[in-house]
């Protein structure tokens, strides 16, 4: 590990939650504006998390604590691997570890709300995981590598131009992973839903704060993935990331929550068709 990498890792660990929190704050502000409200301050997510750390610890089962921490650990590792520009599939698998522990923690409480939330979370994972793998395979077919470092070093045009449909496929995964409508089925950022708070129902106080911080890490990771689609220019990268996130917020605001019975078949069919179309295009181009 070189000195640069060490710095990158430390920076990623420290800076990611700050970026993630700010993004969450902006998200709430923009959402409020879209709804004709004034909205909370940009720093609101930080206040929320700090407050949660100051709350009394309340658990149903000690496994919740264990799982909350493991969720955070997995997400931090995801970010570290991203900062090291490692293998996309490996990063993705580590991200899945976090999801699995979140679900196990939710299943640990014998609450019908968190149990159903956990089941839905699993189905959401089932929906987006294959889609993300397909996106990574597309990136490999185009660039010849799964390693981010080699993609950046050897491939010198924006990925978006050759993988536009796969970018849309990744959009599906983003909606699910960022807990946005119409796919905020397992838990939602907004108020409460028919299963109270889904997977997060039984997490409270500091443990909820830990999960929130992990979510910030995840957000940064997902935005990092977006950024990879235009790695040649910082300006366009920023534009792409901002536009994508704004698109997600917009979708969130104009959509109602759907059921998994709708999400699973539609996301898969749409995702598969677009992925195949894009693969076909790549093959045509290569000849």
């Amino acid at each position: 590990m070189s000195m640069n990498e060490v710095v990158a890792v430390i920076a990623a660990i420290l800076v990611s939650p700050i970026i993630g929190g700010l993004v969450a704050g902006l998200d709430r502000k923009v959402t409020a504006r879209l709804q004709g409200r004034y909205g909370p301050p940009i720093l609101q997510p930080f206040y929320d998390v700090l407050k949660l750390f100051g709350k009394e610890k309340m658990i149903v089962n000690y496994w919740q604590i264990f799982c909350a921490y493991m969720y955070l650990v997995a997400d931090v590792l995801t970010i570290i691997l991203l900062a090291l520009q490692s293998d996309l599939l490996l990063i993705f698998f580590v991200l899945a570890v976090g999801g699995v522990f979140l679900v196990i923690g939710a299943l640990a409480a014998e609450s019908p709300y968190s149990q159903i939330g956990a089941q839905r979370e699993l189905i959401q994972m089932l929906t987006y995981e294959p889609l993300l793998i397909l996106v990574f395979v597309g990136i490999y077919l185009e660039t010849g590598s799964f390693k981010i470092s080699e993609i950046i070093a050897n491939y010198n045009q924006p990925l978006l131009l050759s993988l536009p449909l796969l970018f849309v496929v990744m959009g599906y995964a983003l909606v699910i992973k960022l807990k946005k409508s119409p796919f905020d089925i397992a838990t939602s950022h907004h108020a409460h839903q028919e299963i109270v708070k889904g997977v997060l129902t039984e997490y409270s106080g500091p443990y909820l704060a830990i999960i929130e911080i992990s979510h910030w890490y995840e957000t940064v990771f997902l935005l990092g993935l977006c950024a990879l689609f235009w790695h040649t220019s910082f300006v366009w990268m920023a534009v792409l990331v901002v536009a994508t996130y704004f698109g997600e917020v917009l979708v969130d605001n104009v959509c109602a929550r759907l059921t998994w019975r709708w999400m699973l078949p539609h996301a898969w069919t749409g995702g598969l068709i677009m992925a195949f179309a894009n693969y076909f295009w790549i093959y045509e181009k290569i000849g």
Partner: peptide, 9 residues
């Protein structure tokens, strides 16, 4: 994942 979760539920 759900099988592992059930053990600790």
């Amino acid at each position: 994942a759900r099988w592992a979760g059930l053990f600790v539920s």
